[in-house]
């Protein structure tokens, strides 16, 4: 696989107050590939992914050291507005978080806050996003119903559609299937594989089978450190580190 590097973390340390939650993380995220971040609870994997679109800045008393860059530019560079960054680097959260609006309005929301006023274009984009998120057939007759009436799996795909609508280049998935049933999970996984063609994807998961199924690269985090990073097949067949091996064979975690 000869992918270009899209995002890069170099010697990243992260602190909540005096508590260091990430230690010296260096990691490349490749274009048009799925990068999975695995590790036991509390290993810092969610913290890491939230650094990539600067969502961590909402947490008081946090401090970032080291460099995270996208296309060679630091994401905290002076001219890099977090708002612009988040348009480029979209995010799907662990718990589906549809807004208490209609299905249509949920997806139009991102376009509207980004200044899109053309109603025809918004409608086009809503339909396209729903189709891309494989939700269109299920909701096309009730676009103006409340999004809260959808099932959990549908809600998560709605959140993916919402993210797609603003045409990001990188999509971050923070344990997207953690609260979903197996059938919804497989739908979301199929979707991620499909999206890989057009987007750069980073997914945090504590489900190792999921990482093996959907990702091209895998990083194993343990206690705030990146223990090992390699192609997924390498990580799962011949890991170099003992701790990685113990984790993927289920000896702890």
């Amino acid at each position: 696989m000869a992918n270009n590097i899209r995002m890069k973390a170099e010697h990243v340390d992260f602190y909540y107050g005096s508590n260091q939650t990430l230690k010296d993380i260096t990691l490349d995220i490749y274009d048009h590939a799925v990068t999975a971040i695995i590790g036991p609870s509390g290993c810092g994997k969610s913290t890491f992914i939230r650094l990539l679109n600067r969502m961590n800045e909402l947490v008081p008393n946090s401090k970032l050291e080291g460099v995270i860059s996208i296309d060679g530019e630091s994401i905290v560079a002076e001219h890099m507005d977090p708002v612009d960054l988040r348009r480029k680097v979209g995010m799907v959260f662990q718990k589906p978080n549809p807004f208490p609006k209609s299905i249509f309005e949920n997806i139009a929301y991102g376009l509207k806050v980004n200044g899109q006023k053309d109603k025809g274009l918004i409608e086009q984009r809503v339909i396209l996003s729903l189709k891309k998120a494989a939700l269109w057939d299920e909701v096309k007759d009730r676009l103006h119903d409340s999004a809260l009436r959808l099932s959990g799996g549908q809600q998560q795909r709605l959140c993916i559609a919402r993210c797609l609508a603003i045409e990001p280049e990188v999509i971050l998935f923070d344990e997207p299937c953690a609260s979903l049933d197996p059938i919804s999970t497989s739908k979301v996984e199929a979707l991620i594989l499909e999206l890989k063609k057009d987007y750069t994807i980073v997914i945090v998961t504590h489900n190792m089978q999921q990482a093996a199924r959907v990702s091209d690269f895998t990083g194993f985090f343990y206690m705030g450190e990146l223990i090992e990073f390699d192609k997924t097949e390498v990580i799962f067949t011949r890991p170099k580190d003992k701790r990685t091996e113990d984790y993927i064979t289920g000896r702890f975690g």
Partner: peptide
């Protein structure tokens, strides 16, 4: 989640609060 979801879609803080 409403605030975060909104910010993650590229809303400014004020937009997130207002809308």
């Amino acid at each position: 989640a409403y605030r975060e979801g909104s910010l993650a879609l590229g809303a400014t803080k004020w937009q997130a609060i207002w809308t």
